[in-house]
Amino acid sequence: PAVARDNNCLNAAKACNLNDTCKKYRSSYISPCTSRVSTAEVCNKRKCHKALRQFFDKVPPKHSYGMLFCSCPLSDQTACSERRRQTIVPACSYEEKQKPNCLELQASCKTNYICRSRLADFFVNCQPEPRSLSGCLKENYADCLLAYSGLIGTVMTPNYLRSPKISVSPFCDCSNSGNNKDECDKFTEFFTENTCLRNAIQAFGNGTDVGVWQPMSPV
């Protein structure tokens, strides 16, 4: 019989549950993110976001990024990619009844100091630069991945879109942008069409960017 193809996202989940720290903080966010609190709400989103931030704060990147940035073959749109999409428990942490406009969401992020500073970090550290070999202005994939994962647990929580290529976005779109359509499109494309971020995620998934696995020594 044919051997089942390796599912990197499943392997990362297995590795997490065999590590006491990762196992503990994984179930610490899955519990609040999957517990219904009332007939109206599927979960307590505030508690879910807080526990997600704690997971990425406390668990070494080897395990937390292993699950968040696991690589899936292009052909796989189910077992592997769906598992990767489910890492943050999107039904609670990501989806809302209505999709807000991205600029409105950005404005609400800026009223919260954690969200404001993490969004600023993301724009600095994942700035694309087509002329650089890495695709990034600051040629440091680890900093870009750290800034991206830092957004998880804020109102800007991003997730993978159901798309054949790696594309991520916060839960918002650019309908009802009025005169700010161009500005809104620029904002969303920084997530969905960002070569720097895409290369950083791919390099981690393929294990080609070894630096990410260890903390960078100060230069």
């Binding site: 503990k24 610490s28 598992r83």
Partner: peptide, 10 residues
């Protein structure tokens, strides 16, 4: 500590 996992039906 508690243990969480994702089943085959996601």
């Amino acid at each position: 500590d508690d243990l969480s996992f994702l089943d085959d039906n996601v």
